[in-house]
Design a protein around this nucleic acid. Structure first.
Lengths: 216, 216
DNA sequence: CCGACTTTGTGCGCGTGTTCACAAGGGCTT
DNA sequence: AAGCCCTTGTGAACACGCGCACAAAGTCGG
């Protein structure tokens, strides 16, 4: 389930506060979901709650981490070390959750060799070797749109089976390979859509258009 | 609908290639969705197709842009000019879609005054003034987790009604304010979850745990 | 001008995910 | 030890979105 990471974060916050046990109601509020949904989610990975009391925070953290596969560490490569790639390489939220930045790759000669967050940027020509030698199974693509599909094909051929794609294109991959897409522009467009709705819909422009046409 | 931006991008690509008309089947393939779903989506914003022919690319671009509110320009502020904030400020995908970066804000004295992508970073103390003077209705939060809720409260008070949140916290906002959340760590965790499933589920660790406990 | 072909727009059934509501179960107090 | 209270876990109704399949509609060739 896609909500487990949210629960996990809320649990970590509670654990830091020294909270030992939490009810589904409280945790649901912290995670911003319905309490029944939370209980059903948790029941899908076993019965780890105590009726009349709630869930033991520490144990639940362990169970969710295990379910998500965060008890093992995952080697991640970032391909494309532009502004976004650099930001991702330096983002602390990854390392703290079992994700290890194992390689940075770029095509630009001026960038190759640079050291970022303790890693030397390698040339994309060595992509296959780097991925295999480091046992990388997750790749993050922060390359230009035109390069995304070719790079994608190469990382898949090299054995990567999970891809986080920041390029604004629809990647096609073989069965068995997972792709998640983050498109910053799309997020803003969705906000603009709702923003416009609040302001009374697209009517104003519509009428201008019709008037312009019919006025001829 | 959240898919309209995807259609729009595919249409832009087609328009650049000089394609004048497109069938739902082709466009659906380019956007990576089912053709019936695409037709239903498009029919929700009016009947802009011609049976037996398809959709006129240019006209459809206009209609979707209008529906999404991209025919007007939106003033956007980025709060938090760390690595991620810089990457966002320099991201070309925004300006090309009617989004105008109108202000950059940060709390760090060493960053305030810096010029990024043609904009001078302003101090967050002036947040209210900056937002009102520039007519900003959309804010992007790229601040540390601890600062997210206070900053959120301030931008909302200043009149912002749409927020794109990169901080790993659940923001609480009044009714009428839209929040979209992008959490890079969660995306990776979801990939790890599926990755683990491919490798046979969390069984290995489970057994180790049980053996360790029962062996006592 | 007509018929065959193509493609849109949509009614309908299905599966999934969500929520309500409650029974089962465990702790706590007396 | 017994009853009360609290919280989990889940059965069942509900809502929603998806996709199939087909009728309506418009184009193109003869």
């Amino acid at each position: 389930m896609a909500r487990l990471p949210v629960y996990l974060r809320a649990l970590h916050v509670l654990a830091e506060r020294g909270v030992a046990t939490v009810s589904s109601e409280e945790l649901a509020a912290a995670a911003g979901v319905n309490s029944a949904k939370l209980r059903k989610d948790l029941s899908h990975l076993g019965s780890y709650g105590t009726r009349g009391v709630g869930y033991e925070v520490e144990y639940l953290v362990y169970q969710i981490s295990r379910e998500l596969g965060l008890t093992q560490d995952w080697a991640v490569a970032i391909v494309g070390i532009g502004n976004l790639g650099r930001a991702l390489a330096g983002y602390g939220g990854f390392a703290s959750r079992g994700f290890r930045m194992a390689a940075l790759l770029d095509a630009e000669p001026g960038i190759v060799g640079e050291v970022i967050a303790g890693l030397t940027v390698e040339h994309i020509d060595d992509l296959e070797t780097v991925i295999k030698d480091n046992g990388i199974s997750i790749a993050v693509l922060a390359v230009p749109a035109a390069a995304a599909q070719p790079v994608c094909d190469r990382v898949v051929t090299s054995g990567v089976t999970s891809i986080l794609n920041f390029a604004p294109v629809v990647l096609s991959v073989p069965d068995g390979v997972d792709v998640r897409k983050v498109d910053l522009s799309i997020e803003l467009q969705i906000l603009a859509f709702h923003e416009q709705r609040k302001a009374g819909g697209p009517s104003g422009v519509e009428e201008e258009y019709l008037e312009a046409v019919e006025g001829q």
